[in-house]
Simulated scan of single mutants.
Amino acid sequence: MLGIEDTLAGIRDADLLAEVEAARGSFLFATIAETILHRQRARDAEVAARGAVAGRRQAMGRDQRRRDAIREVIETEPTGPENLQHIHSVLALCGLPYRDPGDAREFFREYGRNSLSLLAGRLKNPATGEMEFQGLPYGPKARLVLLHLCTEAVRQRSPTIAVADSLSGFMKEMGFAVTGGERGTIRQFKEQLARLAACTLQIGLWDGAGSASTLNVPPFRQLDLWLPQGADGVVWQKSVQFHQDFYDNLIQHALPVDIRAARAFSGSARKLDLLFWVGYRLRALQRPLRLTWDNLHKQFGADNASIRSFRQAFKADLAHLQEVFPKLPIRLDDTGMLLQPADPSALLIPPRGTKLPRGAKPASRAAATG
C-alpha cells in the first residue's frame, strides 16, 4: 500500500485534486485519497487507450478509419429505433446503376426469375420552362437519397416529404460536407433526387411454370422544383411525393437499415447494395443459402466485366462489411458464397415482423469519420 504522500503525488486532475482538498482533515482521508487515486488511474488508462486507437487509425486510410470508428460506436452504444432508417425491400434486391450510364435511357437487370427495368424520364425546369431529360440515377448518393426519402415517409407516415428542410441534415449525418457550387455535394445529391423523381420502375415476375406479371412502379408522383434568387443556378426541391401505390407498398415492405452502417459505406454503391441485400436475406433466411460466383456477379458485378475481377473486388467489399459487423455468418470459397441463417441483430436490425417506429428522430451522435 502506498504512503499518503505517494498517493497524493499520483493525483493530477484538477477536479480530483479539489476532492482531495475537500477531504483533508477527515478521519478517512487516507482511504478517500486512495479511492481518488484509483479514479485517476482509470482516467489515465482511458486516455492511453484513446491514444493507442488514434495512433492505430493514423496509419489507416480514410475509409478504413471511418469503418473502424463506426465499428467502435456500434460496439459501445446500444441499438435503438433512433438508429434505424428504412428502404423499400425491392430496392434491396434490385440495385441501381453503379456508375453514370450517360445518355442511356434504360437500365435492365435480371435476378433469377425476376427482372428490373429502370426507365429515365424528364422534369420541368423552373428556370427555362423546358422538359429536360434527367438521366438514370446511379451511384451511392442515389441510394442514400432513396434511403432518406423512404425513411422520412415511414417516420412521418406520409407520402409527401419536405426535402429542403431535411436533405442537408441527412447529408451531414452521412458524413458529407454540405457544399454549394458547381461541384458541391448539394448539387450532386439534388441531381440524383431529380433523376429518381423522373424515372419509372418496371418489375417482371415469373413463376417458371407459364405465369408471369409485369408491375409498373413509378416511385414518385410529384416533385416540386424552384429556383431561388442568388442560388447560382442550383434548382432546389421543395417537396417530393411518393406515388401512393409505392408508398403503400413501402409501409408494408420497409427494410430497416442501421444508419451507422450506412454511414460506414456511404461512399460505395456496391457496399451499400451488399448491406441492404444481406439485411433483407438475414430477416427471411431459414436455411443456408449458397450462391455461385456467377449468381453473385449478376447481382453485384455491374462494374466488372469478368468474374475474375469481380471476385477480387467483391472479396474486398465483403471484408469491409465484416470489419464493421464481425458476426455476419458469411463465408466465401472457390464456388461462391455461403450465408447461414442468423439473428438479424448481427447486422443491428430488428427481426421480421417488428413494428415500424412512428416519429423516431435520427440518431444524434455521429461517429468520427476523419
Rank of each mutant, 00 (worst) to 15 (best):
W226T: 11
T160D: 10
E72P: 01
I161F: 01
A197E: 11
P228W: 02
L147Y: 05
G61P: 08
H86F: 15
G169S: 09
I251K: 13
H253E: 13
D294T: 14
A261W: 01
R270Y: 00
I87Q: 09
R143W: 01
A262T: 06
Y98F: 10
D273C: 00
L275K: 00
Q40S: 02
P159T: 01
T185A: 10
V235R: 14
A198T: 07
L147R: 04
L291C: 07
N83S: 11
E173P: 03
A54H: 10
A9P: 05
M60K: 03
L318S: 03
V217S: 12
L93R: 14
T292R: 09
G135R: 07
S239G: 12
G129H: 04
V240Y: 06
I87V: 15
P362M: 00
L8K: 15
A48N: 09
A120V: 06
I32E: 12
K124P: 05
P81R: 09
R71A: 15
Q222Y: 11
F242N: 05
A194F: 15
S168M: 10
F300A: 04
G61H: 05
L16R: 15
G121P: 09
Q64N: 08
A104V: 00
Y247E: 02
C150F: 06
R311D: 07
T369H: 13
D333L: 02
R365C: 01
A52P: 00
M1R: 11
K190R: 15
K190D: 09
M131W: 15
L96G: 05
L93I: 08
G359L: 05
R290P: 09
E82R: 08
T200M: 11
D224E: 14
C199T: 05
G10L: 03
P256L: 01
R365V: 15
A231C: 09
C94P: 01
A54T: 10
Q229W: 06
T335P: 02
L149K: 07
A319D: 15
L291Q: 12
A305G: 10
Q188M: 13
P256S: 01
L16F: 01
G336T: 08
R67G: 04
G267D: 12
L116P: 02
G181Y: 06
R331T: 14
A264K: 02
R155N: 11
I330H: 01
G359T: 05
Y138A: 09
L119G: 04
L318N: 00
P140R: 01
D44I: 05
D258C: 06
K238L: 12
D303S: 14
L225D: 07
L339A: 02
S345D: 13
N83D: 15
L96I: 04
Q322F: 00
C94D: 09
T151Y: 05
T292V: 08
K141G: 00
E46Q: 13
Q286K: 14
R281M: 13
D15H: 14
A360K: 07
P344N: 04
